[in-house]
Design a protein around this nucleic acid. Structure first.
Length: 429
RNA sequence: GUGAGCGUAGCUCAACCUGGUCAGAGCACUAGAUUGUGGAUCUAGGGGUUGCGGGUUCAAUUCCCGUCGCUCACCCCA
């Protein structure tokens, strides 16, 4: 094969695209209910934006970004996530309303695997403006409403607090490091290295020995400073008032981006393979200030991976194949003329235009004459719902034969009544 | 970046381990079963330099090496 899509870049083909459209339209609908507004930001951004926001030392910035020099010798990157862009736009345009959502592509140059692509798509929301626990909870309400709207059932929502960058986290890191140094011998090679590089990630290790060592490890939650502890307590309290947010405290979840503080959460689904997070997010109170806005403006947000949502929905059989067929079948009209009489063709074109004008979906009239048998074969392959047949007989009578491809029944309809007839048949379905 | 598995018709796969008969099957496709009625069935048919390159051998889809690609896992994350 001479040309193919780049590694980790997927074509979304017509027989799958309706699923994407479904997720997109449900998302827009849910966000709308909560009065979040859509924002669209560029895919290309400046390198420093992400160095500053995600963190210079993170894997994303160090080795996963598509980055290059543009023709003006400027360092640009394909966005590896969109939160930083949204905050940038918020600050740049001094937006007043910070309830924003987005649907779009991001890029990371990782090795692809199940549920992980180099171009991936996220639907996410940001709530920029406040530092109140109520905001954390609002965001979780939107997130769970979205998942419910999509019909996703078997997911787990895990929440945690990672404290603040200034007080709790440095303190906690110290304590954890002390503890793990004692357990050094029981840890896998990877984790021994992680003690220095990314200590908090040790909690994610799947090696049995490490799991044992971690069991007794000090937890972030026990090392929160007073304000952070109060914030988290309030979040839990508010969440408990919401009946339909089934969450669990999971002290081991941590986020890979530096900007998170306090509340963090993750939605996982076990039908996904190794990459089992369908979504995640949390609070990032320092980011607005970091990117040049007011230091008093806090924020929180979440993002769900579209392809992971789709995988999860597929595994729960959220998409019926019938539904897909129905969408294809959704009201397609196939129009054909019989015989070579040019007058019939002209008449048919007129009907075709009229029906399209009335908002029907009409397959373009075939260029060549074919026997009826052929026309029906084609119509069947296209999943047409109705075939309109215009032959000499019909033409003389000023009618057209309408064949219902589901039932196989057929009746002659007067030309001037065709629109209302079809409308009636389509609505009744 | 590291490791493992896999590349055979448009698609899903068989034959490879134990080198050697024309590399097969299902689905799809094309044409017919008499000319204004589809989906089903039947009949016939087209289609593969076995990813690419090299090596071993009288002989390679089959064994070995390289390369490219895909997949999964590590890592990381949505």
């Amino acid at each position: 094969m001479k040309y193919q899509a780049l590694k980790g870049m997927m074509d979304i083909l017509p027989d799958q695209v309706w699923k994407w459209q479904f997720v997109e339209s449900v998302s827009r609908n849910i966000f709308n209910r909560f009065n979040f507004q859509e924002i669209r930001t560029p895919i290309l951004e400046s390198l420093p934006l992400f160095q500053r926001s995600i963190g210079e030392e993170t894997d994303i910035v160090q080795k996963e970004m598509f980055q290059f020099k543009d023709r003006g010798d400027r360092d640009v990157v394909m966005r590896p996530e969109v939160t930083a862009s949204v905050v940038r736009a918020f600050v740049e345009h001094q937006l007043k309303d910070g309830k924003l959502y987005y649907i779009g592509a991001s890029f990371r140059a990782e090795r692809p695997q199940a549920g992980r692509f180099r171009q991936f798509h996220q639907v996410g929301a940001e709530l920029i403006g406040g530092k109140n626990p109520e905001d954390d909870v609002l965001l979780l309400k939107v997130l769970t409403a979205l998942l419910a709207g999509l019909g996703l059932r078997r997911y787990q929502l895990k929440i945690n607090s990672v404290g603040c960058q200034t007080t709790c986290r440095p303190e906690y890191r110290k304590v954890l490091k002390e503890y793990l140094k004692q357990k050094h011998a029981h840890l896998c090679e990877n984790c021994q290295r992680r003690i220095e590089t990314n200590i908090i990630r040790i909690f994610d290790c799947k090696v049995e020995g490490c799991q044992k060592a971690i069991e007794g490890a000090p937890r972030v939650l026990d090392h929160l400073c007073k304000p952070c502890e109060e914030h988290f307590a309030k979040v839990k309290e508010l969440l408990d008032h919401e009946k339909d947010i089934p969450y669990q405290i999971e002290p081991r979840i941590v986020r890979g981006l530096d900007y998170y503080n306090r509340t963090v959460f993750e939605v996982s689904h076990d039908a996904l393979g190794a990459q089992n997070a369908v979504g995640g997010g949390g609070r990032y109170d320092t980011l607005v200030g970091e990117l040049g806005g007011s230091k008093d403006i806090g924020a929180c947000g979440f993002a769900c991976g579209m392809e992971r949502l789709l995988m999860a929905l597929d595994s729960e059989e959220g998409f019926k194949t019938e539904e897909s067929a129905q969408r294809l079948r959704c009201g397609l009209i196939y129009l054909c003329v019989l015989g070579g009489n040019p007058e019939l063709k002209t008449a048919a074109r007129k009907i075709q235009g009229q029906l399209r004008g009335a908002d029907f979906r009409v397959e373009e009239l075939a260029a060549e004459d074919k026997p009826l048998k052929k026309h029906l074969e084609i119509a069947n392959r296209l999943h047409a719902l109705f075939v309109l047949i215009l032959g000499e007989d019909e033409f003389r009578e000023g009618t057209v034969s309408v064949k219902d491809m589901n039932s196989g029944t057929q009746e002659k309809i007067k030309l001037d009544a065709i629109e209302t007839y079809l409308k009636g048949r389509l609505v009744s379905r």
